[in-house]
């Protein structure tokens, strides 16, 4: 355990230094995340200019969800996104060979190899939106609901991780996977609004068949008391399943790994 923690810190350290080598990065994030936030706010405003409530959601509840979405997706960027995105590259270039000879769990190593600690900034912009919508709604939220939210989101982050890692692992089978980033956007985009807005059937499928709903919508519903409390346990269940599956699939794929010829 201590070994893994130390390696984790060493990886944080080395990726931060690596990241700073390209200084323009930081500037890019700040502008990017601010612009997309403004667009999102305008979009939601237009949407709600036609009616006060849509599928049981009010405007500021959606703002809050959008803020949360921004926090979760930024956190995913900080922790996992780039590392997972690089798996196809490792496979194609044969760098995976070197990782596999290291005396450390290869999934762990690859998962945390390329963190982006500086993108924590965009988590802040999300928090601003959350704060703003809470002010506007003027409600008191109990500690219990807060913990539902946080635990639900943690589970959600792991669900997203498990799904995305497994998808990226497919590159071991197909050799190339240049569209992996696009797949991520397809997965992520619907999370920015309450899934209920897609209608009953779609939102059911996106919650219980492909558990995307448990990433953000359900935790926020739990926060507002719109879903029964035991949905938290469904979330935790799906999170364990996703992580377990990603690990199983990774090890299974490695048995069939043929390593790029060179």
């Amino acid at each position: 355990m201590k070994h893994y923690f130390k390696v984790f810190l060493a990886l944080l350290n080395i990726s931060a230094k690596n990241y700073l080598e390209k200084r323009w990065n930081v500037f890019g994030i700040i502008t990017n995340s601010t612009i997309s936030l403004i667009i999102m706010v305008i979009f939601v405003n237009v949407y709600f200019s036609f009616s006060k409530e849509i599928f049981g959601w009010t405007k500021y509840q959606v703002f809050l969800l959008t803020g949360i979405y921004r926090c979760v997706s930024s956190l995913f960027y900080v922790l996992f996104f780039r590392s997972i995105n690089w798996i196809p590259n490792y496979v194609q270039r044969g760098t995976l060979d070197i990782f596999l000879t290291k005396p450390i769990n290869s999934q762990f190593y690859i998962t945390f190899r390329l963190t982006r600690i500086f993108e924590l900034f965009s988590v802040l912009t999300g928090l601003v939106l959350v704060y703003y919508s809470l002010q506007k709604m003027d409600i008191m939220v109990s500690i219990i609901n807060w913990s539902f939210l946080i635990l639900g989101l943690l589970a959600g982050l792991l669900i997203l991780y498990g799904i995305y890692f497994s998808l990226s692992t497919l590159s071991i089978w197909i050799g190339r996977f240049s569209g992996i980033t696009d797949v991520f956007y397809i997965l992520r985009e619907p999370l920015a609004i309450p899934l209920d807005l897609f209608g009953k059937t779609t939102s059911f499928v996106l919650t219980f068949i492909i558990p995307l709903g448990f990433i953000i919508t359900v935790p926020v519903r739990l926060f507002f008391g719109m879903s029964p409390w035991y949905f938290l346990f469904f979330g935790v269940f799906f999170a364990s399943l996703a992580v377990w599956f990603s690990s199983w699939f990774w090890n299974f794929s490695l048995k069939h790994y043929t390593s790029a010829s060179s």
Binding site: K6, V7, L9, A10, L11, I14, K17, N18, E21, K22, R93, G94, T95, D97, I98, T101, K102, P103, I104, Y109, S262
Partner: peptide, 30 residues
């Protein structure tokens, strides 16, 4: 795995944009 090393002339493990020292330190932890 702690007792062997594989070096391939065509593949590298060093972090490209950083001094090699950084990669050594990472390996020390691993």
């Amino acid at each position: 795995q702690k007792q062997f090393s594989l070096v391939m002339g065509q593949k590298n493990q060093l972090w490209w944009d950083l001094p090699a020292m950084e990669s050594f330190i990472l390996n020390k932890e691993i």
